[in-house]
Amino acid sequence: MTKGGSALFPALGPRLMRSLGTLAIVVLLGGFAAAALVRYGPGFCTDENAWNPQYSASSEEATRRRCEDENNLPQFYLRYLRGAVEGNFGTSKSYGVPVRELIESRVPITAGLVAFGVGGGVLLAGLFAWIAVWSRMPAVEAGVSGVVAVLLAVPPAVLALGFFLQEAPIQFAVSLTVLARIFGTVRTMLHDAYGSSPLLAARARGLGPIALGWRYVLRPLAPRILALFGVAVMIAFGALVPIEALCDVPGIGQLAWKAAVSRDLPLLSALSLIITFLVASIHSLGEVLAGRTSRDSEAAV
């Protein structure tokens, strides 16, 4: 047991420990920021019933006492964090329902959009970059780069609006947004890989393009491709709010926009905390897997 345990930690390595530590700090700081924003946000502890003449003195007193309790930020933060861990983020001011319910019903829609957008974006970026590098024709490379530059110059929301108005799937807009932002990195990666000496030697030996691509491009690049997925997820989440808000997609992004417009800080803070946790987790996982795969690739070579 002891042997297994001691073997496990060196295998996981300091990278995982560092990632978990960063994740914990992100969540703690994010939670604190969210709690502080809710606590000091406009309208905190104002009760619309205070102007109701039928409201009894004892109810007013109970509200006042509750506010006094919540005035202490550290205590408020600890309660907020405990609630967040249990999945209780309080009640939305604008919808009047628990924040958890609102989020749960919208997660599948956003998850589908992000998964399709990221998967499609990485695939398209790979394809475009491969065409640019493999063709070895300046005109083709300039053409592909030109298309990507135009895509990069269009705000993601306008791109999505175009798809929406043409009744085309909005997921493609997310994919194109991801493609435009990671194309440069993918092209550089492929350019370096296709120019490496082992690949050139294998090509001279007559190895086919598929075997070349698998052995000398995809396998050595696997860690960086994994890390790229983490970046792509962050890009997709960044584009989510305008795309969902303008194209009437009832996901997390649209919920965040509605919360911002109606100044629903409890909802907005909870959403930010969850998204930050998700993005930081994916980022950490990507880094850990990238490190692991890098060691495996080196061992294989």
Binding site: T22, V26, G30, M234, G238, A260, T276, V279
Partner: peptide, 12 residues
Amino acid sequence: CLSIPWIFLFII
């Protein structure tokens, strides 16, 4: 800071 999607931070 890089873990926080800027648009969420900004709208908040």
